[in-house]
Amino acid sequence: MTGFKVTFNQNVKLGMDIYRKGDSTTVDEGVCDELVELDVIEEGFELVMKEPKRVEEMTVPELKEYATENDIDLGEAKKRDDILAVIQSFEEENAPEE
């Protein structure tokens, strides 16, 4: 997975995170494009490879997005542990056989 390491040229709230002038983070291409349009990042951001997050490390919104992207029906699961259990069960059932 690729991303862009950016450095902010002013204080910015990005989602739930707050970054101060001079702070750096890695963002996806779409977010990077938006930040360029808003002129809130310094020039010269770099392309970096990001390791994909393990599902055990994901937040509820990330788990829901992961489920949507992988056509996983979460049913009535709402809590993180329930969502994670559904995803893990799906992955075990659909793992390639060795």
Rank of each mutant, 00 (worst) to 15 (best):
S24K: 15
A95V: 02
E76C: 03
M49G: 11
T26W: 07
Q10D: 05
D17W: 07
L14V: 04
E46L: 13
S24V: 05
E37F: 07
T26S: 12
D73Q: 11
I87H: 02
E34A: 06
D17K: 15
G22Q: 04
K13H: 05
E29C: 01
A67M: 07
R54Y: 15
K53V: 03
V48S: 11
E42C: 14
D81Q: 10
E69R: 12
V12C: 05
M49N: 15
K53Y: 08
Y66F: 08
K5P: 09
A95H: 08
S89P: 00
L14F: 08
A77T: 01
E69W: 02
E93K: 15
L63W: 13
G22K: 10
M16G: 03
T26D: 14
I41M: 11
G22C: 00
K53S: 10
Q88A: 00
E42L: 13
K5W: 06
E69Q: 09
R20H: 12
E76G: 04
L14S: 06
T7L: 15
K79G: 00
P96R: 13
T26P: 05
F45D: 13
T68G: 05
S89I: 00
M58T: 07
D33F: 11
K64A: 01
V86L: 07
V27L: 08
A67P: 07
D71V: 03
P52T: 15
T68R: 14
V60G: 05
L14T: 01
D28M: 06
A95D: 08
I87R: 03
D81I: 08
K79W: 01
K64C: 02
D71I: 00
R20N: 15
N70R: 13
E57P: 00
K13Y: 03
V48L: 14
T2D: 06
D82Q: 12
F4D: 00
